[in-house]
Amino acid sequence: MSAPEVRTLEATPVGPYRLPTPAENTKLGIWVWLASDCALFAALIATYVSMHGHVGHAPTPQQLFDLPLTATATFVLLLSSLTMGLGLEAAQHGEHQRLMRWLVVTMILGLAFVGLQAVEFTTYVHRGLTPDASNFGASFFTLVGFHGLHVTFGVAWLLSIFIFVVRKGPLGPRDLWRLEAASLYWYFVDVVWVVIFTVVYLLGKVS
């Protein structure tokens, strides 16, 4: 091997260094996590799609699904995304009171969604669709219930931010990323619901 040619290493090709902020790291982390959550829901939806035909002696999707109820739940969640966004915007402008108001409204809407789901589930169970009655039931309760758990966790997350603000004072620019991270998750749960109400409820009613 011949001697390597001597060359000048570049002096300073890049600007001054700083550590990435918690906001930069956390947001990237949240996006990676949400990407992986997509695969999680995909596996559940694949299960539902391949199982929903096995109704056995239990009621069928067409008999059970109540579109007005689902539409109400959908609008509740949709509205909660809007209030989340308004809350985030208030925080960005440093309007503390408005943030807290929107946070409370968002949490109430989230709980209302979970409540509606509880009502829906109990109705179905009373009408004979238990998780072990048919594989439609099993996969339906698993998929939709899993999404409901996501919403519940989202409410807990928002509540934790609420408590944080109550204890430590208004969200400063240095802590804004906490709310941003939670909001990304909250929107994502709504995105998943769009897929679920289309694939499960609307297509279930159609076919």
Binding site: S36, L40, L44, T47, P131, D132, N135, T142, F146
Partner: peptide
């Protein structure tokens, strides 16, 4: 890759613990 496996485990858990038949 881990999420599909997690779901598989969850489904099996529901099968074994709550009597469904996935």
């Amino acid at each position: 890759a881990f999420p599909p496996f997690t779901i598989n485990l969850v489904l099996l858990m529901i099968d074994r613990m709550f009597g469904t038949g996935f």
